[in-house]
C-alpha cells in the first residue's frame, strides 16, 4: 500500500432527511432547501440566486413555508435540518411569490428577463398594473443623488419606479438601471465572489438604493476593469454588452438567428472557456459557462470583449 494512499482522507457523508410537499427526500448535510427541491424536481423561482455566488437571499421569490416557523424561509440559502417539513406550493407561499413578482414588475422594467422568469411572473398571477400608473422616469443623476432618510411625500396618484436614463459611458457595456431589480449579483461578481475589483456597490437606502460607483463616477473614472462579470450574472438585461445593446436598439437582435459555441479564449494560458453567441457570422456576445472549473462563468476584459480582431474586416 502506497504511503500516499494511506494518507488519503475518506469522504465524510452525512445526509439529512426532510419532507417537501409530502415527499421524503434525503440530501447531504449542508444542502439548502433549494438543493433538496431540485433533487425532487420541484421548480423553484429564483432571481438573485446563482450557483457560483454567495446567496444574498434578497429577492425573496424562492420563499417556502417551513412548518413551525413564524415566517417564510428563502429556499436558496436556508440549510436543511433533519425532520424539516417544507411546503413549496401553499397559498401562503404562492401569495408571497406573486407579490414579489408584482412589486418588482410594478417598479422595474422586466421586459428582458428570461422566458423562464416571464413564465413564473405569469403563472403566479402577478398583476403589476394594480398599483396605478407608473411615475415618470427620474432625470439623469436624480436617483443617484438621493440622500438616505427623509423623502418628499408622495400622493399615491402614480406608482414610483426606478425608471431612469440608460448609462452609456464606454464602448464595451451599458447600464440600464431601469431594469435593475437590485439582486446584488453584479456587486458580488465584481466583489469577493469573483473579480474582487469592487468597482460597484449598493449605495443609498430603501427604495432609493442603487448600484453605484463612488460618487456615481462614470465607469471610465472608476475602478472598473471591464471584465463584464457583472453582465454575465445580470438576470434582467440591466447590464449588457454594447454590441448587444446596439443591435437591440437597431431592432436587429434576433435570437432565432443566433448560435452559441463553446471554445477556449486565446489570450493567456489559463484556458477560460467562452460561450460565443454568433449572429450572421459575427460574435455579438461572449459569456463563460457557469459550471466550468476554470472560470466558474467569469472572464476578463480580453476574453469577454477582445474578440473584435476576428471581425474587423475590410468592407
Amino acid at each position: 500500500m502506497s504511503r500516499a494512499a494511506r494518507f488519503k482522507l475518506g469522504v465524510i457523508k452525512r445526509t439529512v432527511e426532510l419532507t417537501i410537499d409530502g415527499v421524503a427526500v434525503e440530501v447531504p448535510e449542508g444542502a439548502t432547501i433549494l438543493d433538496a427541491c431540485n433533487k425532487l424536481g420541484i421548480v423553484t423561482p429564483t432571481l438573485c440566486y446563482l450557483s457560483t455566488l454567495t446567496p444574498v437571499n434578497a429577492c425573496r421569490v424562492c420563499v417556502v413555508e417551513v412548518e413551525k416557523a413564524r415566517v417564510l424561509a428563502p429556499a436558496c440559502s436556508r440549510k436543511v435540518e433533519p425532520g424539516m417539513v417544507v411546503h413549496t406550493d401553499s397559498e401562503r407561499v404562492r401569495h408571497s411569490r406573486r407579490m414579489v413578482f408584482e412589486l418588482l414588475s410594478s417598479s422595474v422594467d422586466m421586459s428582458l428577463v428570461s422566458g423562464e422568469v416571464k413564465g413564473w411572473i405569469d403563472s403566479y398571477g402577478s398583476d403589476a398594473a394594480r398599483y396605478g400608473p407608473p411615475a415618470p422616469p427620474a432625470k439623469v443623476g436624480e436617483r443617484d443623488a438621493r440622500h438616505a432618510g427623509h423623502h418628499h411625500a408622495v400622493d399615491g396618484s402614480v406608482a414610483e419606479t426606478v425608471a431612469q436614463p440608460v448609462k452609456i459611458d464606454n464602448d464595451l457595456y451599458v447600464r440600464d438601471y431601469s431594469r435593475c431589480i437590485l439582486c446584488y449579483k453584479c456587486v458580488e461578481a465584481c466583489g469577493e465572489d469573483a473579480q474582487n475589483t469592487f468597482a460597484i456597490a449598493v449605495a443609498g437606502r430603501g427604495f432609493d438604493a442603487r448600484i453605484a460607483t463612488e460618487f456615481d463616477a462614470p465607469l471610465t473614472d472608476s475602478a472598473c476593469v471591464y471584465c463584464g462579470n457583472c453582465i454575465g450574472v445580470c438576470p434582467t438585461g440591466a447590464l449588457m454588452p454594447k454590441s448587444e445593446y446596439d443591435l437591440r436598439q437597431q431592432g436587429r437582435w434576433d435570437e432565432a438567428r443566433q448560435t452559441v459555441t463553446q471554445t477556449v479564449c486565446s489570450f493567456c494560458g489559463v484556458g477560460c472557456n467562452l460561450d460565443l453567441t454568433v449572429q450572421d457570422n459575427a460574435i455579438v456576445r461572449v459569456d463563460s459557462p457557469l459550471e466550468h472549473s476554470v472560470t466558474h462563468g467569469h472572464l476578463c476584459i480580453k476574453g469577454r470583449f477582445g474578440f473584435q480582431h476576428v471581425q474587423n474586416l475590410p468592407d
Binding site: I301, K302, G306, H309
Partner: peptide
C-alpha cells in the same frame, strides 16, 4: 497590461476604456 496582449495585433482590435 490587463487589457492588452503581446504585440497587440489582436487586442488592438477592440476599444478598451483602460
Amino acid at each position: 497590461r490587463l487589457d492588452s496582449y503581446n504585440t497587440g495585433v489582436q487586442t488592438g482590435g477592440y476599444s478598451s476604456p483602460m
